[in-house]
Design a protein around this nucleic acid. Structure first.
Lengths: 254, 254
DNA sequence: CGGTTGATTGAGTCTTTTCAACGGGTGTGG
DNA sequence: CCACACCCGTTGAAAAGACTCAATCAACCG
């Protein structure tokens, strides 16, 4: 058995992001249902310490600061953004339970990570990770996988941005969020959309107003049902297929 | 000295992509000036075999095919694209001399790589790479770096797509291409823009027409000078700064 | 209660896309 | 050799879409 193969690795999407019975509330109010670390291969890496809490609106780390730690999100949602040279906020991603942050950076954080909801994280120092890699070659495989996952996340955003219309972008964005709650799309169950309209706009390269308007349109068309701005349902799964054909044979890109 | 540190690695942008004296012609006509593999740390990995040629318009590999090899571009330019579910072509990148392709994929190629210009590549099987990693831990560091580079490339596209206007996207795209020829921006020297207008459009999320129109606008404004559709100059480096302030302290994102 | 924040909606403007036409190359076959 | 077709780039006019500016509304908080 090869110790460091690029092949024999956990599938990116098979992560224990949300397990049956562990109802993950993305809005962070239900702190009891954190990601169970025992099931995570990476859990051992981060140790079984009690996770740290990050209050809503607080930053976990800042763009440009020396990257000393790697973080695993246990519960809650974070927004990841940079400041462009013109001073505009550029959303480069969101982090959900199970995600690992900044495993791919070299020495400085490339973006700021800010808690959208009350968030709980585990951390490991980059030094310690290096030692772990040296001691157990298998760890390198895990790190490879995580970097692949990070790459997939960015690629996913790229594909969203390459959608022509705002409607398409938003539908796919919503579906992406929905897919983090297993079965939400198929059963039409309600799921949380914790981030602000502005966050979504900055992520999709749109304005807040366009996001609002488009979501209203989707509501009028019966594609989505909203209970407040942050609770969404897809009442008609079949309808979803028509608007955005996600019939991708390989789930790698979502 | 830690054998597998994530820190002590070659800077992503310090790659021997274009060396003084090795005038890289991106249009691929000058096949003599290939990337010198001796200077490349990764060169040893790929061996010093004679590079394979890929004719213009031919694919190096196809989206969805089993990923058996990893490629290093020695000369020429490739377009990297996927087919969206609606059948539209989605450009996910371009590959230039020095780039390494598909080091981050798991088992199937995520995109098709097609030669824009006559191209020369070296290849290594994924199996062999795994063995190399096992034998020399230092190789893992190189692979980490390359994956970081791949991540940076995708992130760069994301940032391009998040630019509000077509003009900004295109200016930054052109600057990005220009930066691959050392000193081209500073001296106002001519550089090649080998890909088609359609390729650029698909990469920037615009239509071909918008790309054309915007480039003629840039030409009229004196920002660029064109000699045919594929030869560009920035005659006034100072003007460039005004239009697109790239004053980014860290070059990581370009 | 007044102030703030976030979401929504409206009206007008600007950009981009769409549809269409044209021109310069290149390659091919008569 | 020329005629023709085809690809690619460019430009034009009209339509659609997204943005800006602005007002309104609801929830929350001191």
């Amino acid at each position: 058995m090869k110790p460091l193969s690029l092949h024999d690795s956990v599938h990116v999407l098979d992560l224990p992001r949300a397990l049956p019975g562990a109802l993950l509330q993305l809005d962070g109010r239900q702190t009891a249902a954190d990601l169970p670390c025992e099931t995570d291969e990476l859990g051992a890496l981060f140790g079984y310490r009690i996770p740290e809490a990050v209050a809503r609106g607080k930053a976990l780390f800042w763009e440009g600061a020396p990257a000393e730690h790697i973080f695993q999100i246990v519960g809650g949602v974070l927004r990841l953004f940079r400041m462009s040279s013109e001073g505009r906020r550029v959303m480069v991603g969101f982090a959900f339970p199970g995600d690992v942050l900044s495993i791919a950076v070299k020495d400085h954080y490339l973006f700021t990570a800010e808690a959208v909801t009350p968030t709980r994280v585990r951390r490991i120092s980059r030094e310690r990770l290096a030692i772990q890699i040296a001691e157990q070659p298998k760890v390198a495989t895990i790190v490879f996988d995580r970097m692949r996952e990070e790459l997939c996340a960015v690629h996913h955003q790229t594909l969203l941005l390459l959608c022509q219309t705002a409607e398409m972008r938003i539908v796919r964005f919503l579906l992406w969020i929905a897919h983090k709650n297993p079965g939400a799309v198929e059963t039409g169950a309600e799921f949380a959309l914790p981030m602000l309209r502005t966050d979504i706009a900055d992520y999709l390269g749109l304005t807040m107003e366009t996001v609002c308007r488009t979501m209203t349109k989707l509501r009028r068309n019966g594609l989505i049902v909203m209970r407040g701005p942050h609770k969404i349902r897809f009442p008609n799964p079949r309808l979803v297929k028509d608007v955005a054909d996600l019939g991708d044979s390989r789930g790698e890109w979502l």
